[in-house]
Design a protein around this nucleic acid. Structure first.
Lengths: 254, 254
DNA sequence: CGCCGTGTTGATCTCACTCAAGTGCGGTGG
DNA sequence: CCACCGCACTTGAGTGAGATCAACACGGCG
């Protein structure tokens, strides 16, 4: 997997949904990135910290999480390569959720100061990031529905579907097959269930012939059935019309 | 309650966390707002719509919600006066969640076109809205923890605490006492539990002497105990340092 | 070799769901 | 003015999904 060019990851990410000028691209490429490696379960940003940089995922997975009083950990979202995991830290003084590596991960840090400078000079870039944040709110709301109103098997199916689509979008899954360095415990913590129950549900998914899942590698054998089971519809991850399409639509109308 | 000046509601909201120039304020005041009334349970923005305007709450409550397949409705967030309920519609082509009135509500619509014009001219305004969106992601993550890892009584306690703090921030709750036009069913749908169970839990909260809750009016009798029970900490709703404070801090350091 | 983390299995318990019936209130119409 | 209706709230009984506790298998690693 290509991590030699951290800036491209970011660029590709933003350009999926926003049109950037040459100048804007240049500005992104000029951001000083500092690459760092993390091993499984290592904390990248501690809960409660006030951070001076944003974290771009280059390889592996990060997650945002917190532990409720007297309960176990809850993962509130995960991040795949190309995602910026802690955009809120850019404008909010304190991070209210920890950022942690799910399996080994490679990240790049972008200093707030440089980012601020770039965004001050380019409203289009600021817009692109805002748009990312807005998409993030949609994903978070999906999770709320998932946790609030679906049973365990549907929850896990939904998480798997989201994972597959998001990985596919950045070229890290082919034919619904991808490597995933999560433990079953991570899956449980993302789905709001116990690890024991998660294990049983995963076995059920296997027995139903919906997924193969051995040793950090997942292959979805029956996408349609899994998506139906998880009440999953990928519109919310895809449909953001790019500015390009916006313009195309306008052009069509005119 | 003052709803005669829709623009002030918005202005006050943004200025809680962002510094606005006179020009920016003027730009906000120039936004053409269209006021509308909704009765309880009326849909303000339908799920799947592509909207051409944003919705500012002036009075009452809105919520964002969706119904999972084969289950009941889940409320994914609520909005109090001063909140913009569907900011994502500004940059995303489709709304993936319905916006509905919880009890009677008064709203004002802001056309995307005028908003876009204002934001194009003022990066500070765009920033202010982005910041609102970032805060929104924090609130949504809190909900995820709430639904994923807390039992019914803690969930409801947490929702009540959030409600109280957010209403207090806009001057609509005094001494932890506020009117709330939600039904118990709405509370259940926000907490991811059944209406029957919500009823029993609310009774328990009453019996514990934590809240009075008759006929659309809630009074929190023991804030500390309720917050403890709901594992609630209001930092995430308050702590965004305003740009003003940012500067003060910088000044202090220098 | 022994240890630890991950996955697996079994037994028991409990919180919350469903179904069902009943109360009380506010509004509507005769 | 009263009868009725509908909605929100309330209560009870039975059920079930998922939690907890505990033990064990397996593989990688120091």
């Amino acid at each position: 997997m290509e991590i030699g060019r951290p800036h491209s990851r970011l660029l590709l990410r933003l350009e999926r949904f926003s049109d950037l000028s040459l100048d804007d691209r240049q500005r992104l490429f000029n951001l000083p990135l500092k690459v760092a490696n993390y091993s499984a379960d290592e904390e990248v940003v501690a809960h409660g910290d006030s951070s001076s940089r944003c974290t771009l995922v280059l390889s592996g997975f990060l997650c945002s999480h917190r532990t409720a009083a007297g309960s176990r950990r809850q993962i509130t979202s995960f991040f795949v390569p190309g995602d910026v995991a802690d955009l809120p830290s850019f404008y909010l003084p304190r991070v209210h959720f920890g950022i942690r590596a799910l399996g080994p991960a490679v990240v790049a840090f972008m200093p707030h100061s440089s980012l601020r400078e770039a965004l001050d000079r380019s409203p289009a870039l600021a817009q692109a990031f805002w748009r990312e944040t807005l998409m993030q709110t949609t994903v978070l709301q999906e999770w709320i529905v998932n946790l609030g109103r679906r049973d365990a098997i549907a929850r896990i199916a939904h998480v798997l579907c989201e994972l597959a689509v998001r990985l596919q979008a950045v070229g890290l899954a082919r034919e619904f097959s991808f490597s995933m360095s999560w433990t079953q415990m991570d899956v449980a913590d993302a789905s709001g269930i116990s690890n024991v129950h998660a294990n049983r549900i995963i076995q059920e998914l296997r027995q139903l012939g919906l997924v193969e899942w051995d040793n950090k590698h997942v292959k979805i054998r029956d996408w349609d059935a899994l998506a139906r089971l998880g009440d999953f519809n990928d519109d919310y991850l895809k449909c953001p019309v790019t500015l390009r399409e916006d313009r195309a639509l306008c052009g069509q109308k005119a």
